[in-house]
Design a protein around this nucleic acid. Structure first.
Length: 765
DNA sequence: TGTAGTGTCCGCTAA
DNA sequence: GGACACTACA
C-alpha cells in the first residue's frame, strides 16, 4: 500500500496541486492538514479557521494521498455547514467533490438505512417521524396499554426513550434502567412503540443514529462494506456529538483508524440533548496515540471582543483551557446597555442598527437571544423602523400545521402503513370522519392485527358497518393519488393532492388573515418542492420527504440578503457577523431558570453566552432589562452573573433606561451596582442602579404597558362601534352585554353573519 | 360531527 | 400568551 504518512519536512516532495493545499495556512493549520496517518484531535477555538483547515485537509487527502473522494467521510453539524463545506471543496477539487460522503449524522444514517435497513426490519420506503409524530405515536401506545397520558406525559416518555437510544439501547437491552416504577412503565411503552414504528414503517430521529450502529454490529458484512470504503473520517463540531454518534463512528472505522475530529470544548452547548463533552475531553484516552493540535489564532474578532469573551469563558472550571490570540486591531469597546424593559432593550438595538447602518450592511447584523419568544419585541421595533429582518428558527416552516398536512398526504402516498400521517389527513379538509369513526377504524386495525390503512380500506368496502359512505370516497381519493404519484414527479403529485382535496381552494376561500397566511405557506411549500425537483438528481417524493424531515433551522436561510438576522444562541453556532447584539443577559434568562440547579448547567449557559459573543467580528453589544414580560406579566430581573468579571476597561457603559422609579429613590445614588458578585462598582457617572440584595423589592409596577396600549376593545366598545376580528374581519357591533373582562358583543360581520363573542378578542378600528 | 368559547396548564435550547 | 382539552350548542 502507498505510504500514507507524511511529515512536514517532506512536503517539498509533494506535487504542485497538493502543495497548493498548504499555502496561506498558519503553522498549526498546516500541521492539522498534513497529519493523516492516525487519530487526530484538533482543538479549534472560535474563529480559528477550522473549516478552512478541514476543507484543505480533504483536498490534501485527495491530491497528496490519492484517496478517491468517495473514500472520505466528513460529518458536519447542520446541512448548511455540509453544503458550505462541499462548495469549498469544489473550489479546491472541482467536480470530484461531488463524490465525497459529506453530511450530518442524521443524513448519513438515512443513507445507510435506506440501503441496508431491511436487514433489521426497516423497510426500504420508511418515513421519518419528527418529534411531534413520535409523541403522537407514544400517545397511541399509551392508549393501547390502557395507561393514562395525564399521569404519564408522552413527551416525558419520549425523552426517556430518546435517552435509551442515545446509549444504543433497544427495548430488550440488559442495561435499560428498571429501578423505578416509572422506568418499568416507560419500558413497556418503549417496547410497544418500537413494534408500532416497525408496523408503520417509520423511524424517529434517534433511530437514524442508533439503528445504523445496530446494523454495523449485527451485520459484519455491512460494517465491512463501509470499513473498506471509508479510508478517512472527519468530524466537525465534535464537542456536540452524543454517545450513539460516537459509537456509530467507531463501528465504521477500520483498523487504519484514520479519523480526525475537530471541536471546541468551550463551545459545547448541546449537553441537554445528550452531547458528551467527554467525547472530546477524553478522545486522547480512547486513542492514546492521538495527535492533538490546537488552533488558537483567531481571525474573526477584534482583540477587545476576544478579551471580553475570553474573560467570561475563563470562569468555567471544566475545560481543556486555551488562550485565543489575534493579530487584529484592538477595536471598539464592548457596549453594555442596561434597559428598563424588553421594549426599551429592543428600541436600543433598533437605534444602534440605524446608527451602524452607514458602515455595515444589514446582512452583517445579528440579534441573539436565549429563547425564541424573545424575538417578538425586536420584530416589533424593527418593523416600526422599517428595518428588514429575518427570524431564524422558532416555529419552523415545516412544523406549521398546513405544511404538515400536505406532507402527511405525501407520506401516506409513499407509505400508507403510517398511521400518524393517515390520521392527520383522514379528516382534513373535514369530510365527516370524526373521532368516533377513527376510533372504530383503530379498533378494527387492532382486531385484525393489521395497519390502520388496511382497516380503513376494509371498512370502506363493508356497507353494513355504516361507515362505508364516509370512508369509501376517502379511500378512493388516496388510491387515485397513489396511482398518480407512481407516474408523476413530486411537484405534480403535490399539485394533484391540493387539487383533489380542494385544500388550497378552501384556504383561499376563507378571507381571514390566518387562512391567507396558511395559503401562502402552502404555496411556499410548492415552491420548495419545485426547487427540490430541479436541484436534486433523485427528484422522487421519497427523497424530498427525507430532505424536509432533516432540515434544520439554519437550512434555507439566506444570510446574504440585506436583512438583520434574529436567532437563538444555539442557532448562531458556526456563524459570524460584523455587528452582534447579545440580549437578555439577566439572571433567569441567561443563565436560564432551568439551568440554575447545577454548576455544570451554569457552565453550559456560560458557554452558550460565549458562543454568542464570539460570533462578532467588529462590534459587540450586551444588554439586559430590569423587567421583562413573561407569560403576559412583567417580572423584575437582575443583570446576569455573566456580566460580572468582564474587564471593565474594555466595556462601554451605555446610559439606559435601567433606573429606579423616582418615588423609590431610597437606594441612594452611585455605587448601587456593587452587588455581592462584585465587578460592577466604581462607575461614578453611571445612571443605572440596582438594589444590592433584596431583589423582590425591585419596583416594576410602573413599567409602561406597551403591549396593551390603546388596543383593548373591551373599553370604549359600544353599539355601532366598528371592530376587527382576526378570523372574521371587519364588523359592526350590534349589542354589548356584561363588562370588564367578561364583556360580550354581538357583531354583524362583512359576510352577513351575526356572531356573539368575547369583547376582548375584538379590536376597535 | 363540527365549531366557538372557556378553562387550565405550561412554558428553553433542537436534528 | 399559546396550546390543548373540555363543554355547550348548532
Amino acid at each position: 500500500m502507498k505510504q500514507f504518512s507524511l511529515d512536514l519536512g517532506e512536503t517539498a516532495s509533494l506535487g504542485r496541486e497538493a502543495r497548493a493545499m498548504l499555502e496561506t495556512l498558519n503553522e498549526p493549520q498546516r500541521e492539522a492538514v498534513v497529519a493523516c496517518d492516525g487519530p487526530v484531535l484538533i482543538l479549534a477555538g472560535a474563529g480559528s479557521g477550522k473549516t478552512r483547515a478541514l476543507t484543505r485537509k480533504i483536498a490534501f487527502l485527495v491530491t497528496a494521498h490519492k484517496l478517491e473522494p468517495w473514500q472520505i467521510l466528513a460529518v458536519t453539524f447542520t446541512n448548511k455547514a455540509a453544503a458550505e463545506m462541499r462548495a469549498r471543496c469544489e473550489q479546491l477539487l472541482g467536480p470530484r467533490a461531488a463524490d465525497l460522503w459529506l453530511g450530518t449524522f442524521h443524513s448519513i444514517g438515512v443513507r445507510i438505512l435506506r440501503r441496508h435497513g431491511d436487514l433489521i426490519g426497516v423497510p426500504r420506503g420508511f418515513v421519518i417521524y419528527d418529534q411531534d409524530d413520535a409523541t403522537n405515536m407514544i400517545g397511541r401506545c399509551l392508549d393501547k396499554l390502557g395507561l393514562d397520558p395525564k399521569a404519564l406525559p408522552p413527551k416525558g416518555i419520549g425523552q426517556w426513550i430518546e435517552a435509551q437510544k442515545r446509549e444504543c439501547r433497544g427495548p430488550e437491552h440488559a442495561e435499560i434502567p428498571l429501578e423505578t416504577h416509572t422506568d418499568r412503565t416507560n419500558l413497556r411503552v418503549y417496547t410497544l412503540y418500537q413494534e408500532e414504528l416497525k408496523k408503520a414503517g417509520a423511524v424517529d430521529f434517534s433511530d437514524l443514529i442508533w439503528l445504523p450502529w445496530r446494523l454495523a454490529t449485527e451485520h459484519p458484512t455491512v460494517a465491512f462494506e463501509y470499513k473498506s470504503r471509508w479510508r478517512y473520517v472527519l468530524v466537525d463540531e465534535f464537542q456536540d456529538t452524543n454517545r450513539a454518534q460516537y459509537k456509530l463512528l467507531k463501528a465504521f472505522l477500520n483498523d487504519e483508524r484514520r479519523i480526525c475530529v475537530v471541536g471546541d470544548d468551550d463551545q459545547s452547548i448541546y449537553g441537554w440533548r445528550g452531547a458528551q463533552v467527554e467525547n472530546i475531553l477524553g478522545f486522547d484516552r480512547d486513542y492514546p496515540d492521538a495527535r492533538v493540535i490546537r488552533l488558537e489564532q483567531n481571525y474573526r474578532s477584534t482583540r477587545t471582543i476576544l478579551d471580553v469573551s475570553g474573560a467570561l469563558i475563563a470562569q468555567n472550571e471544566s475545560r481543556h483551557g486555551k488562550t485565543l490570540w489575534t493579530e487584529r486591531e484592538r477595536g471598539e469597546a464592548v457596549r453594555v446597555y442596561p434597559a428598563q424593559t424588553e421594549r426599551d432593550e429592543a428600541e436600543y438595538v433598533g437605534r444602534r442598527i440605524e446608527a451602524l447602518r452607514q458602515d455595515y450592511s444589514l446582512s452583517e447584523v445579528a440579534i441573539f437571544y436565549r429563547t425564541n419568544a424573545q424575538s417578538r419585541a425586536f420584530e416589533d421595533v424593527l418593523r416600526a423602523r422599517g428595518l428588514p429582518y429575518r427570524v431564524i428558527g422558532g416555529l419552523r416552516f415545516y412544523d406549521r400545521a398546513e405544511v404538515k398536512d400536505i406532507l402527511a398526504y405525501l407520506k401516506v402516498l409513499v407509505n400508507p402503513a403510517d398511521p400518524i400521517s393517515l390520521e392527520r389527513i383522514i379528516n382534513r379538509p373535514t369530510r365527516g370522519i370524526g373521532k368516533t369513526t377513527v376510533d372504530k377504524c383503530r379498533a378494527e386495525a387492532d382486531a385484525r392485527g393489521g395497519t390502520l390503512w388496511e382497516a380503513v380500506c376494509a371498512l370502506a368496502r363493508e356497507p353494513s358497518a355504516g361507515l362505508a359512505s364516509k370512508l369509501a370516497p376517502f379511500v378512493e381519493l388516496v388510491l387515485d393519488l397513489m396511482t398518480f404519484a407512481a407516474a408523476h414527479s413530486a411537484l405534480e403529485t403535490a399539485l394533484e393532492v391540493l387539487e383533489k382535496t380542494s385544500y388550497l381552494a378552501l384556504l383561499e376561500a376563507d378571507r381571514s388573515i390566518e387562512a391567507q397566511g396558511r395559503a401562502d405557506n402552502v404555496k411556499e411549500l410548492l415552491g420548495a418542492i419545485g426547487e427540490f425537483v430541479e436541484r436534486s438528481a433523485d427528484g422522487t417524493l421519497g427523497a424530498f420527504l427525507d430532505e424536509v424531515s432533516l432540515v434544520s433551522d439554519l437550512d434555507g436561510a439566506n444570510l446574504e440578503d440585506q436583512t438583520v438576522s434574529l436567532m437563538t444562541g444555539h442557532t448562531a453556532k458556526g456563524l459570524e457577523f460584523d455587528v452582534v447584539f447579545v440580549t437578555g443577559l439577566e439572571e433567569g434568562l441567561m443563565p436560564h431558570f432551568n439551568s440554575s440547579d447545577s454548576e455544570s448547567a451554569i457552565e453550559e449557559e456560560r458557554r452558550l453566552t460565549y458562543v454568542a459573543m464570539t460570533r462578532a467580528r467588529h462590534v459587540l453589544h450586551l444588554s439586559h432589562a430590569a423587567s421583562r414580560r413573561r407569560f403576559g406579566q412583567s417580572k423584575s430581573a437582575v443583570p446576569s452573573r455573566f456580566l460580572d468579571g468582564l474587564p471593565q476597561n474594555l466595556l462601554h457603559q451605555e446610559l439606559g433606561g435601567y433606573s429606579l422609579p423616582s418615588r423609590s429613590s431610597g437606594w441612594g445614588s452611585g455605587g448601587g451596582w456593587g452587588g455581592q458578585r462584585g465587578g460592577w462598582g466604581g462607575g461614578g457617572a453611571r445612571q443605572a442602579q440596582r438594589p444590592t440584595d433584596d431583589v423582590d423589592a425591585w419596583v416594576v409596577d410602573e413599567v409602561p404597558d406597551y403591549e396593551n396600549e390603546s388596543q383593548d376593545a373591551s373599553e370604549g366598545l359600544q353599539r355601532g362601534s366598528r371592530i376587527f376580528h382576526t378570523k372574521f374581519g371587519e364588523g359592526r357591533v350590534l349589542e354589548v352585554s356584561g363588562d370588564g373582562d367578561k364583556a360580550k358583543a354581538k357583531v354583524m360581520f362583512a359576510d352577513g353573519v351575526t356572531r356573539k363573542m368575547m369583547a376582548s378578542v375584538l379590536t376597535l378600528i
